[in-house]
Design a protein around this nucleic acid. Structure first.
Lengths: 239, 239
DNA sequence: GCAAAAGTGTTCTATGTACACCCATGT
DNA sequence: ACATGGGTGTACATAGAACACTTTTGC
């Protein structure tokens, strides 16, 4: 029984996942999600925190971690039966990680690049686990304040909006985003307009910090892939 | 490693869960979720289907089954470390189950009654697993057509509405429910007005069957516990 | 002044909700 | 006729999207 972790962050404006390069068989040389065995008297989430801390040095309150799903198909590890309890971790941008024992290197990969053809094959069934983790993150941004775990303790609404755009992979209307976020009680709290991080000749934005809300009312829904049919327009092909 | 199953159905208009009475230690005589050990080369979902079939005789296509969450707190089984992959099963109403080995009886319990004070304590951490399963079912009715797994192959919209009311535990406006369901593409298909199941002197309702949709667009949202504050009205107490 | 990004106002539309009314059927 | 549930019409309130416009800052 192992605990694997999908550690997501925003790097250079893009959603990125932490992968380690395996130094041992099976799948030697291939990229994989960081993970480790669960101790005999260790809680599942405890094991996941241990893996996350080993790779990033982060601890609770600085990061978010939740159980994702358990993967136990008989053939997923070619040598013996291994059931993996996958977790999802969300962290702010941070220095390059070091990797743990049995790995030769560790780095963040843009999720977008992994979906491309040139992407490295991931070990085991980690491709499916990653996909599930990304989808969970996308869904959770809608109805929880988890986007704030991706930004510094103090942030602008533009930075927060960039998080949504990076995770969802779609542009977000700035003016309406602002109104919605501010109308959600307890999502963000104003802290004045102290700093001016933008050296590009523009207005200084207001600064905010995360509020006490654990759930977003009303939700901040992502733009759905519009499948509305315009009357009079004939269907253009696919079912 | 075990696979436990939260088997939900609608009985007498109420949401009910299948429990078995344990005939062995630990927790002998207490009620528990049906479950069993996962075979050495058995898939997790396969094991859950096996448990569900043993208790109800139902097979895929007749019922819905999905992974819920994995519970692995070190002390959850007082004797040894047992990690349980919990699953959620939704089935139509059916005859009383028989129970498996190691159990003295099996029956459906109204979830509402279990939440009452007189309820029997459940074995292990099954109380928490049940709560997670019920919440998952409530959420899934909103954006999937799973409510149709609770009713016969052919059903009326009133029957379907009763499912939503039983699972959510709230009344649903009949007229608007009808319009919403029919506007959701692929949710239900009309099959004419063949039968007249109601012997109570009322109009014969239209009959429907489940449609091909796997997701509901737009979603059928449950009434949220209105926490809007009326201006001028002072807060009435609890946090 | 001009460009760039922040922030505000307003309109239009889709959606959700409530309420009133008509329909079909059995007693 | 009338009670009972099924089914339809319609108006009102709310929420979301789109667009234009003003503000602040650096060059």
């Amino acid at each position: 029984m192992t605990a694997d972790v999908v550690i997501l962050t925003i790097r250079e404006g893009r959603l990125a996942v932490l992968l380690v390069q395996r130094g041992e068989e099976p799948f030697r040389g291939r990229w994989a999600l960081p993970g480790g065995f669960v101790g005999p008297s260790e809680d599942l989430e405890e094991a996941a925190w241990r893996v996350l801390a080993r790779e990033t040095g982060l601890r609770p309150k600085v990061a978010h971690l939740e159980q994702l799903r358990t993967y136990g198909a008989p053939g997923r590890d070619p040598r013996t039966r291994v059931v993996s309890v996958a977790h999802l971790g969300l962290v702010a941008d941070l220095p390059a990680p070091v990797g743990g024992r049995g790995t030769t290197s560790a780095r963040f990969w843009a999720v977008e690049d992994l979906e491309a053809e040139v992407a490295p094959w991931l070990a085991f069934d980690h491709e499916a686990i990653l996909a599930d983790g990304v989808e969970r993150a996308r869904a959770k941004l809608e109805y929880t304040p988890l986007a704030t775990t991706f930004v510094p303790p103090t942030f602008t609404l533009s930075e927060l909006r960039h998080v949504y755009e990076a995770v969802w992979g779609t542009p977000v209307h700035a003016a309406n985003f602002r109104r919605k976020v501010l109308s959600i009680e307890g999502f963000v709290l104003p802290v004045g307009r102290t700093a001016s991080p933008g050296p590009e000749g523009a207005r200084q934005p207001d600064l905010y910090q995360a509020g006490p809300a654990r759930l977003l009312h009303p939700a901040l829904l992502r733009p759905r892939p519009e499948q509305a049919r315009v009357m009079g327009e004939p269907e253009t092909g696919e079912l």
